[in-house]
Design a protein around this nucleic acid. Sequence first.
DNA 1: AACCGCGCCTGTTCGC
DNA 2: TGCGAACAGGCGCGGT
Length: 269
Amino acid sequence: MPELPEVETVRAAMSRHLVERRVDAVWTSRKKLRRPVPRARLQSLPGDRFVGARRRAKYLLLDLASGRVLLVHLGMTGNLLFRYERSRHDHLRFDLDDGPPLVYTDARRFGVVDLLAPGREATCAHLAGLGVEPLSADFDAEYLRAHCRGRQRPIKNLIMDGRVVVGVGNIYASESLFLAGIRPTARAGRLSRTRLERLVAEIRSVLQRSIDQGGTTISDYLGSGDGGLFQQELAVYGRTDHGCLVCDAPIKSIVQAGRSTYYCPRCQR
DNA sequence: AACCGCGCCTGTTCGC
DNA sequence: TGCGAACAGGCGCGGT
């Protein structure tokens, strides 16, 4: 599924292959995604041209020459690909002035597609209230500590809270807590500054390493593929009852806030 | 105010 | 072998 590193990979692909392309025609399916797709407004895109590809949290922001912004969230199964073939889960297709069409495909339809008028990004409900980018300088131990102070909730729930820090999904939450040696159930407010410092470093590190491998996973220009090399590097996620890679103790799985959590009961305290 | 449970979706995996 | 149940999870919303 697209986590921050994969969204970043898609952004890079759009930057390389979509920017400078002109929209010639737009097709949309009738099915709604997490929210209804603005089908009528999207029909005003032909003639416009893509001029940039940015990312905020897990949202892709595709800039158009008119100043409008095509906002795309991949949800769980969404993807942006360049291909001619059609498939039953396609929901959006742009014919471009050169090369294969750009297709948004999303089997489970948890994604979001919206078209923002010029200057409307600042007031866009999707983007309002988002926390800091985990790979930016704003995300440091001091910032995390301020959000942990006095909080009773488990640290895992807190680092997955998009109002605090964005882009840390269920997989990377478990992985970064393992790397930091912190038990996912630990009360956020009881963690020392030193341990939060370590956690910040591991979140950055695991996301960056995944981005470095992301180039081959999702949405390359002509290829597709969903395997993902980073899967092979997961230390705890999905490894219930398997031996910890460090100490060989069996990995435990529990449910927190309705999500599966994986951790090593010996390495994480 | 803080925090959690739930529903949205459907392809895949699991157990009987 | 076939079928239904369970599961996956980002995010917004409603409830406590």
